[in-house]
Nucleic acid binder design. Structure first.
Length: 120
DNA sequence: CATGTGACGCCTG
DNA sequence: CCAGGCGCCACAT
């Protein structure tokens, strides 16, 4: 095993990242939002940059990063990974919170939270 | 300062 | 439905 693999991931908490974490913390249980909607909510036009910030989440589980999915309502990634086992954990977490799925990999639109309503 | 890399998203063919 | 192409932008190198 290479030494690099055991290095701790040093997370630089920039203003941008904090904005992302704050926004994600507002997503209620049983709902999801999308990378793009989070980006818009914090005044940014790059969903990719939101994904970058969520690759490492130093505030789990207070910041429920598993509640952020792609705009097509497929899962995206989890724990910095996009492989099947990581996505299966993300799906199980969402299922346990009451998020509805239309198929094993796609969330039902009813479960979308778009930040427009204060009380979900 | 230049370049590469994504947990993205939209448009085209 | 499935590729590509490209804009996007924070971060690492």
């Amino acid at each position: 095993m290479g030494l690099a693999e055991m290095e701790p991931v040093d997370v630089k908490l920039t203003d941008y990242r904090m904005k992302v974490y704050l926004a994600v913390a507002a997503i209620p249980q049983g709902k999801v939002s999308t990378y793009g909607l989070v980006a818009r909510h914090i005044g940014c036009s790059s969903a990719r940059a939101v994904g970058q910030a969520l690759r490492v989440n130093p505030f789990a589980p207070d910041v429920p990063c598993h509640r952020v999915v792609r705009s097509d309502l497929k899962l995206g990634g989890f724990g910095g990974r996009t492989d099947a086992s990581a996505l299966a954990r993300k799906r199980d977490l969402l299922l346990s919170e009451g998020v509805k799925f239309v198929d094993p990999d796609t969330i039902h639109p009813d479960s979308l939270y778009d930040f427009s309503q204060p009380a979900g």
